[in-house]
Design a protein around this nucleic acid. Structure first.
Lengths: 181, 181
DNA sequence: GTATTATGTAATTGATCAATCAATAACATT
DNA sequence: AATGTTATTGATTGATCAATTACATAATAC
């Protein structure tokens, strides 16, 4: 569905509709990551932005829709990071791994969101997570293939596997799990 | 903490206190796995056992305590499975992998519980999950070391990583993620 | 300078649940 | 029968929240 709807993009940080949407989304990432999808309240999100709770519903139809948007933003960033890594074919996988570890530091909240969403049983969220996994798998596959790496699939799987362990390590705060990757 | 409290252990499947506890725990695994920790209600668990909702609280002080017990049961089984695998040193890791994939089929619900718990932000549950990861890591390390495998840590990490991807594949119902491991 | 739209809030509702409590039924033991 | 214990429930409460409604104010246009 729609997400790019910017008419007004003055340099000034005005409270335009689009800005608000962004602010809310950013607050949502933080609040959901901190409290988890179910315990997080729309009031918390509102408070963080400095608006009233009902006003959130001007921008997102439901709490679920808000969460899905936050989740998509996280997936977008992961895909973007992978697609932007520059390295020689021999070092590509390694560099992408490094970039991901970096991501778990700079945008931990978005990673936390992904791990949370993996465990959520609501069908729309499960679907979003399946889509997320597919998108990430696809970009990794495409990059490794373009780099001319043979027998791509096992490499991709191993790469994703490491990513999943990274995630858990980040979420649980257990860096020791990640050391020997 | 305490769990063995059996005075009456007739062959007969009476409604002894211990039996009830087990029944509730088993129901809880299923209900939590199906609905997720937060959406699952103690009433659902009770209904599944065929008892009243308040009666659940005779056996578990809080919903959280019930979830923690269910989670521990899941971890126990994983650890047990790994500790019981028999194979030559060269095939040990491979066989343990196979055993785990088998586990994700025979006791999917318990695996689902683990993935869910990874994303839950309540401190007692996070602690339980850290403990769970440590226990699993320890048993894998111990087995690989005992089998005389050199440079254990990287092997262990790679093994755990694959496990995490297995989990996600199982939870999201995406077997294709697991094929090329 | 009034109509209209965008930006916002306060107040409220309707539903859901975890948890408690007082009571009862069923079963042993003496 | 009297006494005690174990297993169990119905009724209720207290709190939390997503979502709605109805109202207010500021900006823009006409």
């Amino acid at each position: 569905m729609g997400e790019s709807d910017h008419k007004t993009l003055h340099a000034r940080a005005q409270h335009t509709s689009t800005n608000r949407r962004e602010e809310i989304l950013e607050a949502a990432v933080a609040v959901f990551a901190e409290s988890g999808y179910y315990r997080a309240t729309t009031a918390q999100v509102a408070e963080r932005v400095g608006i009233s709770q009902p006003y959130v519903y001007r921008f997102f139809e439901t709490k679920e829709a808000l969460f899905l948007a936050a989740l998509e933003r996280a997936t977008d960033r992961i895909v973007r990071v992978f697609s932007e890594v520059q390295a020689s074919p021999e070092q590509l996988a390694e560099e992408m791994g490094r970039a991901y570890v970096e991501l778990t530091r700079t945008h931990r909240n978005e990673i936390v969101l992904q791990v949370q969403a993996q465990g959520i049983r609501d069908e729309p969220i499960r679907q979003a997570m399946r889509s997320s996994m597919r998108r990430v798998k696809d970009v990794v596959t495409q990059r490794l293939m373009t780099a001319g790496i043979r027998n791509t699939q096992p490499q991709v799987s191993a790469f994703l596997a490491k990513g999943m362990l990274c995630n858990v390590a980040a979420v649980l705060g257990m860096p020791e799990l990640t050391e020997c990757l």
